[in-house]
């Protein structure tokens, strides 16, 4: 059973008279609890594909199922609700909310998206703060912590709603190699601990090696797939 099933996915962008074919007939399936990376040069379609999987955009053609939901036909409000309950996001620039503390940033999706009760919020946020090693910084604001720490907070925020899937678009692009490696290790640890599927895009070859399944994208087409391990990826 796949968590994500993509059949003949196309995505076109129109810029004035010109139509740019960003994705050209992609077919793939990703099992639950996978640790997947999409690699490729700039403009290969990695971000476009993650946006489609994350229900932030819709394919021009094809069928895309995420967590048993045909995401093509979701309304704007349904998409938001679906993302809030099923998908976590990690951004290249961390995108933490500057007026909220580390604790409050992690708590935000539970509070504003899922409206979880206070006791439940406290339990889950504290557990994740502990898991990402940020308990000591919980009362600090994003501008008071380092880039690596911000990305740890972003990982915790992405996981706090117990999503089936976490999407990370170039999560290590703004980090030094050591920190980047630590963040990827943290993501892997979280996958092991919570059974969440992680999909990330990168063009850093050293980081790519940490993924268990690697899809290679070039000019909007899947040029290869490498399986390096994982429980459900045989």
């Amino acid at each position: 059973m796949s968590l994500i099933a993509a059949e003949n996915i196309h995505k076109d962008y129109k810029t004035g008279e010109v139509t740019v074919k960003a994705l050209k007939g992609l077919n793939f399936a990703i099992a639950p609890a996978s640790f997947v990376s999409f690699v490729g040069p700039s403009g290969s379609g990695k971000t476009t594909l993650l946006n489609l999987i994350g229900c932030l955009d819709k394919p021009t053609e094809g069928k895309l199922t995420v967590a048993d939901t045909d995401v093509l036909h979701l309304s704007r409000k349904q998409s938001a609700s679906f993302r809030g309950n099923n998908i976590g996001f990690i951004f290249q620039d961390f995108n933490l909310i500057p007026v909220l503390t580390v604790y409050e940033n992690i708590e935000y999706p539970l509070l504003m998206v899922q409206s979880a009760p206070a006791a439940e919020r406290k339990k889950r946020v504290t557990a994740l703060l502990d898991a990402v090693g940020m308990i000591a910084q919980k009362d600090k604001y994003p501008d008071q912590i380092s880039g690596g720490q911000k990305q740890r907070v972003a990982v915790a925020r992405a996981l706090v709603t117990n999503p089936k899937l976490v999407l990370a678009d170039e999560p290590t692009a703004n980090l030094d190699h050591k920190t980047a490696y630590m963040v990827i290790e943290l993501m892997k640890k979280m996958r092991d601990e919570f059974g969440t599927t992680f999909i990330f895009s990168t063009h850093d070859q050293k980081i790519v090696g940490e993924a268990e399944i690697i899809y290679v994208l070039e000019d909007g087409e899947l040029k290869g797939k490498e399986v390096k391990g994982g429980k459900n990826n045989g």
């Binding site: 938001a80 809030g84 976590g88 951004f91 995108n95 935000y108 999706p109 998206v113």
Partner: peptide, 16 residues
């Protein structure tokens, strides 16, 4: 704008 994009991406409903 980016902050709005972030909170919308993580599932905050338009009404909120």
């Amino acid at each position: 704008i980016r902050e709005i994009g972030t909170i919308a991406a993580i599932g905050t409903l338009p009404g909120k």
